[in-house]
Design a protein around this nucleic acid. Structure first.
Lengths: 172, 172
DNA sequence: CGAGATGATCTGAAGTCAAGACGATCTCGG
DNA sequence: CCGAGATCGTCTTGACTTCAGATCATCTCG
């Protein structure tokens, strides 16, 4: 039966729901709108949260490195760090070894705020995954984490399209 | 050992890589940049592809219904349909039963283009999932599909934050 | 028939992203 | 020691989204 569609069940199953990109976009968006208010309560934006997390538990040598780590545009990163610095969660310190570079490091407040915020974020994540069995949750997280880092390359008519360690997410 | 970070392995494992939102955003972005060129070869944008897919295998009564199905803003949808219609992949027909509404239906060309494009897209998806076992691929897809549709609600200090069947993805 | 709701479209404001320009600084060959 | 070229952070710019509301045509129902 090659035609799965017509006059079937409640029919929430078009090919849309098999499209990986659509699924990911949808889920990400859902999480984003759910988490944004919670983070705002901690004085953080989604980007701020992400960058702060990277700063807190990574030995950050330069903003450029940071940008690549979270895969955000470097010019965007400037603004995010501005925001974090203004909130006193992060500090920009000139690298004594290279006066071009700025070492970005978290303040104590930053670490505290992150931990608090992260707790809320985790709660939201858990809630999203609520009706999956613990094993399924585990494997989902593992699978996703495993995929990230994998470059996405596509061969097309002999040419190689690179959509690799992709540049940047995009949220609010 | 509560401190997983300092002086460890190659250390690609900050808490970032446990953050669901970041993972999803990252993967989605990767897929997007990989698929966009392939779709462009078929004369489609990412949005065009998504909407066309929804139109082809769903009984579309009105643009509004369509908008909700793919969860895209209605005013954005207008432009996407314009694009598809100009390319002759889709037709806007006034609903005889309600002259306000427009029935959007795919043309034969539209169906053909979609099938061709979808083949390429699937190839890219498979490539992304390449080094997962078939079982893992299956379960990943199933898990994601299962989660979509789940409203994301968060309880916060007694209030209820709704980030449910979220509005719209966002790509190029 | 008239009031209010609804569908499609358009407009405008705000926000986002990518890419280039720029000044300051580093590095390295000569 | 010098100067060419690369690199880092920042700013600016242009294109593009998103969201809310205005608008017009049409439907529904009293």
């Amino acid at each position: 039966m090659p035609h799965p569609t017509p006059a079937d069940g409640p029919a929430p199953d078009s090919r849309l729901h098999d499209d990986l990109h659509w699924l990911l976009a949808r889920l990400k968006q859902g999480l984003a709108t759910a988490q944004a208010p919670a983070l705002r309560a901690h004085g953080l934006s989604l980007w701020g949260y992400t960058v702060l997390m990277a700063v807190v538990d990574a030995p950050t040598r330069s903003q450029l490195a940071l940008a690549q780590a979270v895969s955000v545009d470097k010019s965007k990163l400037v603004l995010v760090i501005d925001e974090l610095e203004a909130a006193g969660l992060v500090r920009r310190r000139p690298d004594p070894a290279d006066r071009r570079a700025r070492i970005v490091e978290a303040t104590d407040t930053g670490r505290r705020v992150l931990d608090a915020a992260r707790e809320d974020v985790l709660a939201i994540e858990d809630h999203l995954l609520a009706d999956l069995e613990p094993r399924a949750q585990q494997s989902l997280r593992a699978l996703l984490a495993g995929l990230v880092g994998e470059p996405v390359v596509r061969v097309e008519n002999g040419r190689e399209y690179e959509g690799p360690c992709a540049p940047a997410p995009s949220d609010t």
